[in-house]
């Protein structure tokens, strides 16, 4: 199917929305409430475009492409509408970006930049920060919330923890946890899905606060080491220190979602007590050893026990932190090499 966006002729797929088609082709149309994983919501109205032959403005996040469609993204009418949305959001929220953790990766800031908005057009009542610092890993500032609903869609639709929802209405509407209790007192399990989905600095990872600006870090994609699911994560590294972890969007198995351990359990990485070499205990105290030395010792002792007491004197206990394949090898080792059926696993507990 062929359409034109911003005078560029594009080949697009049937069933796609105009916004998706634009993104795939590197054309920026502002958007705030749309996320690939939560879908069109129609709430922010910043993604509007004009289409030749159709009256009025249309939200590109929900508008399906159709053959021959000509999409205009930068008419005065479109830009005025987008400016209105951004000006209203900036004027009714507390958006002084200087120390905001989202500065540089904020989707609201991106739209403001695109539209050339320096300061909000409306000067109304002062907005106070509305901070919820009660949770261990998640930090909220409702005054930066644009009520896009992405966190709510994620909490209910993706991870199905059903903690978040909208409460109240109109200008008073806000994101609530359970019956509007502080997040730390709610049924939140701190998976951080909401953080991952938030386009602004309203819900952020608490651990990274003050640790570095987004542009000072580089990302390293790796596999979460906590369990066999193999979630893909990005380590955010500054000065050789991991200051944040986010889920890798767009790739399986997790497509961005993580659990509390994978997202927030990285303290051990730089902990001085972290084991970096095997330890061997002699006379009741540990000393550092090389892998070769340690493995030799284990092999020697396993052989000795097997000879002295038979293979069933040995049991093998493996871990949920390793992969299925590794667990398979472990039981194979127990049965074929040692000769015992004493195999167990921590996930059985």
């Amino acid at each position: 199917m062929n359409i034109t966006i911003k005078d560029r002729e594009l080949e697009v797929k049937e069933g796609q929305t105009v916004l998706q088609a634009a993104r795939e082709n590197g054309i920026y149309i502002p958007s705030l409430c749309y996320h690939d994983r939560t879908g069109p919501a129609g709430k922010c109205r910043v993604c509007v475009v004009e289409v030749e032959g159709m009256a009025g403005l249309h939200t590109s996040c929900s508008l399906e492409v159709s053959e021959g469609m000509k999409v205009i993204t930068d008419s005065e009418k479109v830009l005025e509408a987008q400016k209105l949305v951004v000006n209203l959001l900036l004027s009714t929220g507390k958006h002084d970006c200087l120390s905001c953790e989202q500065n540089g990766i904020c989707e609201l800031q991106d739209v403001a930049y695109y539209l050339g908005i320096e300061t909000p057009a409306f000067h109304m009542a002062d907005v106070k920060p509305e901070i919820d610092d009660s949770s261990e890993f998640v930090y909220l500032d409702h005054s930066k919330c644009i009520l896009c609903g992405r966190c709510i869609a994620g909490c209910n639709g993706t991870v199905v923890n059903e903690v978040l929802d909208f409460g109240y209405r109109g200008h008073e509407a806000k994101v609530i946890c359970d019956n509007d209790v502080p997040m730390g007192h709610s049924s939140c399990v701190q998976c951080g899905e909401c953080v991952q989905l938030c386009p602004t600095g309203a819900i952020i990872d608490k651990l990274r606060r003050g640790k570095g600006r987004p542009w000072e870090t580089h990302k390293v994609q790796t596999t979460c080491g906590y369990c066999g699911v193999g979630c893909q994560i990005d380590l955010h590294i500054k000065d050789n220190e991991v200051i944040d972890i986010t889920g890798k969007e767009g790739v399986g198995p997790n497509f961005g979602s993580l659990c509390v351990k994978g997202r927030y359990g990285y303290h051990f990485l730089n902990d001085p007590a972290r084991l970096k070499t095997p330890l061997i205990r002699t006379n009741g105290s540990f000393r550092e050893a090389s892998w070769d030395e340690a493995l030799d010792l284990v092999a020697k002792n396993l052989n000795r026990i097997k000879q002295e007491s038979g293979p069933d004197a040995i049991g093998v206990f493996s871990s949920a932190r390793i992969t299925n394949e590794e667990n398979y090898l472990m039981q194979k080792f127990a049965r074929a090499t040692i000769g015992t059926n004493n195999v167990d696993h921590c996930a059985r507990l």
Partner: peptide, 21 residues
């Protein structure tokens, strides 16, 4: 309209609030 705005979309939610102001 500000009292009754459902608050789902930005122009109405914050626009009616601003008009009242």
């Amino acid at each position: 309209y500000a009292n009754e705005s459902c608050g789902e979309c930005v122009p109405c939610r914050e626009g009616t609030y601003s008009m009242v102001y």
